[in-house]
């Protein structure tokens, strides 16, 4: 499960079971299907987003420190280029 949350208080903005994460040197390109309305809500807070991939005993936290995020309306895809990744146990 991939969740996109606001960094102030962790309000859930979007979640998806379907997503891809491509590692590119020290960045991670994260993409997920999304509808336009949800994408608009996410983009409204593009400077304050945390992304979490949750597994049974660990979470992986990503963020894009320079808000590198875009919505591709034709494909209904959200693309986020994260430059931070931390894995921690839960």
């Amino acid at each position: 499960m991939l969740m996109i949350r606001h960094s102030i208080g962790s309000r859930l903005l979007c979640q998806s079971e379907t997503y891809t994460i491509d590692e590119k040197e020290d960045h991670w390109l994260i993409s997920l299907p999304i509808d336009e309305e949800t994408a608009s809500k996410v983009l409204e807070f593009q400077d304050e987003l945390n992304l979490f991939v949750t597994k049974e005993k660990e979470k992986t936290w990503f963020y894009s420190s320079d808000a590198q995020i875009k919505f591709l309306p034709k494909e209904n895809q959200l693309m986020i280029l994260a430059d931070h990744k931390t894995v921690y146990p839960v």
């Binding site: 960094s7 102030i8 208080g9 962790s10 304050e48 945390n50 936290w61 963020y63 931070h84 931390t86 921690y88 146990p89 839960v90």
Partner: peptide, 23 residues
């Protein structure tokens, strides 16, 4: 000033490990 929370937490309970940034 972004957050001003007045919290009361019961004995032995609390906020488990979680991340923050830019605050």
């Amino acid at each position: 000033l972004r957050v001003f929370n007045d919290d009361t937490v019961q004995p032995g309970r609390g906020f488990g490990i979680h991340p923050h940034r830019e605050a």
